[in-house]
Structures are given as structure tokens and as C-alpha cells.
């Protein structure tokens, strides 16, 4: 690697943590091979089940701590869907909740040392972003037919500007899945790589390692925040796209 050659003995492999490896040995990765992706996604599922199913099994009127957190997550996403996508968007609340909970736990689990961050992979985020993109596009066309195209025809703008705005709107519409997916993967990857680079410095600095360690602590705190915010951003953008599909008329 470039950094390795430049610093001689310094052994920093910030990208190694993102390698997809088969879990049970072997070299080939078929589409069905259980890999570390499988493991960490399964752990995310486990966390979701622990929080939202096991945590709420008491069905208490006065909730326990875990049930409180589960209700908080439910209320948070429910309100977000209601506020952004409107009342008729609530039909799609379970889908958005699924995306939010998966991304949230994948991000948080990625912060566990030695773990693998599934959401740092563009394959994962692009799949979700494209799924959202196609879902809302098809939904918009099914609900409004040709009327869905009024999303690109800004009737409040002067008539002269409308064709130009329409071109811009179309381009921005099709760029949505790209920004939607790269934002999440890029954030996760960059933060984890930075932590790893600082960790590499810490390994060779001896007593001076206190500085990279302090930096790691700071970046780790920031990453914890970013983990939540990126899950929130992904979910709220999904709501925004959903609103556009449900109400294309500005």
C-alpha cells in the first residue's frame, strides 16, 4: 500500500477491515457463501430482535428500560414518517423502520473493535438506495400515472425557466440513489479508516501513542454520532422520496 511504502516500517492497513472473508475458510466467495457480512448482518438482526421483540415482551404499561428504548425508536421513526411523508405515508412505516433499524445497528456494530461494518460497503448501501429509488418511482407512477411527471415540472416557477428546471430536476432525481448510497457508505468507511490509521500510529509511537489514542477517542465519539445521524439521514431521505411519490405536485 502507498502509506506502507511511504513510512517504511509503519504497518497501516486501514482498508483491511473492509475485506469480505468466508467465515468457514476457503477462498471462493459465491453468492451464498456465509461470510463476515453474513455474521455481522445476523448480529444486526439479533440486536433488532433483542431490542424490539425480547425487549418489549413484557408489553408493560409502565415500560422497562429496554422497552422504553424500543418505544422511543418506534415513536422516533413513526413521527418522522408522519411528519415528512404525511399520514398516507404511514402505510410504508414498517419498510422505513426496517431500513432505519438495520442501518442503525449495522453502524453501531461496526464500532465494536475488530468488527466488520456491513454498511461501509457500497454494494449494501447501493442495494438499499436502489430499492428505495425503484420502489418510490414505481409507487409514484402507479399512484399518479403521467401525473407523476409533474414532480419535474415546477408550476410555481416562471414558464421560461420551467424546461431548464425540469432538466435539473430530472438529473437530480436520478442522482438520488447515488448520493443516498455513497453518503452512508462513505461516512462509515472514512470514519473507520481514520480510526485505523490513528491506531497504526499508536502502534509505533511508544509513549507518544497518547496523542493518537486521544484522537481515536475523539473520532470514536464522533463516529458514534455519525452512526446514528447517517441512519437517520438515510431514513428521512427515504421519507422525502416517498413524499415526492405520494404527492408529486409541489
Amino acid at each position: 500500500m502507498a502509506s506502507e511504502e511511504a513510512t517504511g516500517g509503519l504497518q497501516i492497513h486501514p482498508m483491511d477491515q473492509f475485506i469480505v472473508k468466508p467465515l468457514f475458510g476457503g477462498d471462493t466467495i459465491h453468492w451464498y457463501t456465509p461470510t463476515n457480512v453474513t455474521l455481522w448482518m445476523a448480529l444486526a438482526v439479533l440486536c433488532v430482535v433483542l431490542l424490539l421483540v425480547i425487549g418489549t415482551r413484557g408489553r408493560a404499561i409502565v415500560p422497562s428500560r429496554v422497552q422504553s428504548v424500543a418505544e422511543l425508536a418506534y415513536g422516533f421513526v413513526y413521527k418522522m414518517v408522519e411528519d415528512v411523508a404525511g399520514k398516507d405515508g404511514l402505510k410504508y412505516f414498517p419498510y422505513i423502520m426496517t431500513l432505519f433499524m438495520f442501518i442503525l445497528f449495522a453502524n453501531f456494530l461496526g464500532l465494536v473493535p475488530m468488527s466488520f461494518t456491513t454498511t461501509s460497503h457500497i454494494a449494501v448501501t447501493a442495494t438499499m438506495a436502489l430499492a428505495v429509488f425503484f420502489a418510490v418511482t414505481i409507487l409514484g407512477i402507479v399512484k399518479h400515472g403521467v401525473g407523476f411527471l409533474s414532480l419535474f415540472w415546477i408550476s410555481s416557477a416562471p414558464l421560461v425557466l420551467r424546461p431548464i428546471l425540469a432538466i435539473i430536476e430530472v438529473i437530480s432525481y436520478f442522482v438520488r440513489p447515488v448520493s443516498h448510497s455513497i453518503r452512508l457508505a462513505g461516512n462509515m468507511m472514512a470514519g473507520h479508516a481514520v480510526i485505523k490509521v490513528f491506531a497504526g500510529f499508536a502502534g509505533v509511537l511508544g509513549v507518544g501513542a497518547i496523542f493518537p489514542l486521544a484522537a481515536i477517542t475523539a473520532v470514536y465519539a464522533l463516529e458514534t454520532l455519525v452512526s446514528f445521524i447517517q441512519a437517520y439521514v438515510f431514513a428521512i431521505l427515504t421519507c422525502v422520496y416517498l413524499r415526492d411519490a405520494l404527492h408529486p405536485h409541489h
Partner: peptide
């Protein structure tokens, strides 16, 4: 590989949420 496992994961989470967790939490609330 990633896409396959992602789809499996999302489907599992979706069914857990829509069948068990969300109705339960909604009912409790």
C-alpha cells in the same frame, strides 16, 4: 454475496418488525 445476505437480512427484519415488534409496540403505546 453481500447483496444476497443483505436481502435476507432485510426480509428477516421486515417480517420480525411487521409481524411481531411493530404491532406489539403500537398496541402497547
Amino acid at each position: 454475496n453481500q447483496i444476497f445476505w443483505l436481502v435476507v437480512t432485510l426480509v428477516v427484519i421486515y417480517f420480525v418488525l411487521s409481524r411481531i415488534a411493530l404491532p406489539r409496540i403500537g398496541a402497547v403505546l
